[in-house]
Design a protein around this nucleic acid. Structure first.
Length: 197
DNA sequence: GTACAGATTGAG
DNA sequence: TCAATCTGTACT
């Protein structure tokens, strides 16, 4: 297995497709010489401007949500309830306010909720608008980093663990009942069957 | 300027 | 079940 960073093309596909494909991918956060790594096991899609649960409902653009409109692969991060950061990844084309909330990593109780994901990865406003395809401090990878990856760099690209659709559960999104029954019942939350949230 | 509610969490 | 905690957003 070799390391393979996710590039622009991964993020610019339709949002619901990316939401499912993100499951099983690894977030790599580099702090100094150390790397924090976690496998994504739960995502949630927000698809403005029609989605009433989205911050960009109705095509609204504010200083807070403008990162949602960036081309796929950028970080949209914001504070909720005055204390928890929420990590989102923009998806789709430039100008389309679509994004995915990263709700959990495969790290047990350390990251079994969106606020805890950011607490574990030490993410805050300074990551606002960060490009995951260019950043030196945070990116996504098909595989967990391995010590041998450099010496095997001659091998063919490895797209990592294949997640079958039968392994994915989709449910209603969490905490957005204010959006009304039509939008709150969309099954736009995706998690691995094996996930223990 | 002021009021208010939220894409959550953890304690009681 | 509920308070913590604070910023963006709407409204005066």
């Amino acid at each position: 297995m070799r390391n393979k960073k996710l590039t622009r093309g991964f993020y610019t596909k339709p949002t619901l497709k990316v939401a499912k494909e993100l499951l099983g991918k690894c977030i790599v956060r580099k702090i100094g010489r150390k790397k924090l790594v976690g496998k994504i096991i739960e995502t949630e899609a927000y698809i403005g401007p029609q989605d009433r649960a989205s911050h960009s409902f109705g095509g609204k653009i504010t200083p807070r949500n403008r990162a949602e409109y960036l081309i796929g692969g950028h970080i949209y991060i914001y504070l909720v309830y005055g204390m928890y950061w929420q990590l989102n990844i923009s998806t789709g084309k430039e100008g389309r306010p679509e994004c995915l909330l990263i709700r959990a990593l495969d790290l047990g109780k350390l990251a079994n909720g969106p606020g805890k994901v950011c607490r574990y990865l030490k993410l805050d406003k300074s990551f606002y608008g960060e490009d995951l395809t260019k950043s030196k401090r945070i990116w996504l990878d098909y595989n967990p980093p391995t010590a041998s990856s450099r010496s095997r760099s001659e091998r063919a690209p490895d797209k990592g663990e294949k997640i079958k659709s039968a392994q994915i559960i989709s449910t209603k999104r969490i905490g957005i009942d204010y959006a009304g029954p039509y939008w709150s019942k969309r099954k736009w939350r995706f998690l691995l069957k094996t996930a223990k949230i």
